[in-house]
Amino acid sequence: MEIRYLSKNEYTNYMRLVFSIYKGNKYFKDTNASIIKEFFSGKSHFCRNARISPVMVMNEGTPLACCIFVIHNSCRHILQIAFFEAMPNCRKAVDLLMSEAKSICQNEGAGKIIIGINGHVNYGLGILSDNFDKTVSFGSNYGCKYYHDYFLDYNPVTHNLNSYTWDMNTFNMERERKILERVNRRYTFRLADLSKLKKEIEIFTDINNKSFEDDLFYTPRDPKEDYELFKNLSYFLKGENLIFAEDNGKPIGLILWYPDYNEMVKLGKSIGAAAFLNFRLLKPKISKLKLSEIAVLPQYHGTGVIAGLFYKALEKSKGKYEYGESSWVIQDNSKSDFLCKKLAHSEYKHYKVYEINDL
């Protein structure tokens, strides 16, 4: 058994292993292929500011496990085991990955390993821990139930993440009516101008960096990194999917939501050009809305701006979708977790991130 560092030209081999792991799984839809491809090429702004090392464990020519080791310049004390995948009953292969990860930490001066973050929280966070019999929504991670068993022997610190769901047909914010009246008198809300995408993404990144500065796992972003992410997504997005809150013209918050594009993707496949053409030309009915994020500057917490942003997204999406699903929320973030419990109907999927400090 050996660990191999993969070249830029071996992206196809990496993805071939990923798809073989989920062969026959009727709930799997790939959401990471485009990002993994960028990590292999190393050409993106994010990759130019990080050590990116795709690896695969082989046993007599048979691939058993893979991941991408990531150390970003903004947090050189952390080694990420990103995009982890493995065949069942391959503990020795995963142990080999972990041994290599610890060796890299010693050589690079990193003191922590994080499993379950894919480069940055904007690219994906968390290993799925339940609801494996539900299809994966766009922007969320899928995974195998046995993955968790591979890492528990390393005595990790476990961080729990929740997502939430709600019925769009019965959802309303009548309880927040007085708050919304006050918020609408004090603040303004506008849709993103996608014809000026670079400028809008600069605002998006600035709000995120200031809003999540102290949040677990968040690291500062460069607008160029977010622009690369949004440039591909912009083929699907409309201005209404990114809404900004402003105080006398000053951006103070945002909400990002979109249709669950994965409903257009066939099981076991990746989203791509075919899905884009289908979305643009045929305008298929999509039943689920995906709430990706809400960010508000710290000094505006408690003002009702979050409720205002949520209501504006509801206005634009009401009557178009049957269900809503949120992205992950870290349980340690009590304010966000409470907000989702208040506005959403129930918890949905759960995820885990593992932190290993004993190196």
Rank of each mutant, 00 (worst) to 15 (best):
R4S: 02
F230P: 01
I179W: 08
I117P: 06
T31Q: 01
V94N: 06
I104T: 09
E181H: 13
M87S: 13
G319N: 11
G239Y: 00
I271C: 04
A93I: 09
G253T: 01
T170V: 12
Q299R: 14
K290I: 08
A110D: 06
F83K: 08
K199Q: 11
F204S: 03
K145F: 14
K199T: 11
Y348C: 12
I81Q: 00
D95L: 05
V57E: 01
A101P: 06
F189N: 01
L297W: 11
I21D: 04
N248D: 07
F244I: 02
F212W: 15
N209D: 07
G42W: 08
K342H: 14
K318W: 12
M98Q: 06
N32W: 07
V265R: 04
N162T: 11
N59W: 07
V157M: 09
M15V: 05
D226N: 08
S44L: 03
Y154A: 02
I356V: 14
K210M: 08
S334E: 15
P251Q: 03
I71T: 12
F212E: 07
R91Y: 11
D167I: 03
V353T: 09
E200K: 02
E293I: 14
S163T: 15
E315D: 13
I113H: 03
E293Y: 10
T205W: 03
Y323A: 09
A101I: 02
D149M: 13
A101N: 04
F171H: 11
S336P: 05
N32M: 10
F138R: 02
F84I: 07
M264N: 00
I201W: 03
N169Q: 08
R186K: 14
K266A: 10
D215E: 10
Y227S: 02
D95W: 08
D193E: 06
Y354A: 00
L314Y: 15
L229K: 07
K8P: 02
L281M: 11
F189H: 00
V55K: 01
R182W: 03
F19H: 10
L282H: 05
I207P: 04
H159Y: 13
F151M: 00
H345R: 11
R175Q: 13
N248A: 04
K8D: 10
A86K: 10
V265S: 03
R280Q: 08
W257Y: 07
G253W: 02
K349P: 10
E293R: 11
Q106K: 14
N118T: 09
G249I: 03
S41C: 03
E293T: 15
A307F: 12
K342D: 13
S287C: 08
D332S: 15
N131D: 14
K8E: 12
L359Q: 03
Y235K: 04
I117N: 08
S137G: 09
H148V: 12
F217H: 01
K341F: 13
T303V: 09
Y22Q: 05
R48C: 06
F244A: 02
I36S: 01
L6A: 01
T219W: 03
C340P: 11
E325S: 07
L314D: 03
A50P: 01
K342M: 13
L297E: 09
D206N: 10
V353F: 01
M1T: 00
E85Q: 15
K145Q: 15
I179E: 14
Y123S: 06
Y150H: 00
S346W: 11
S74V: 15
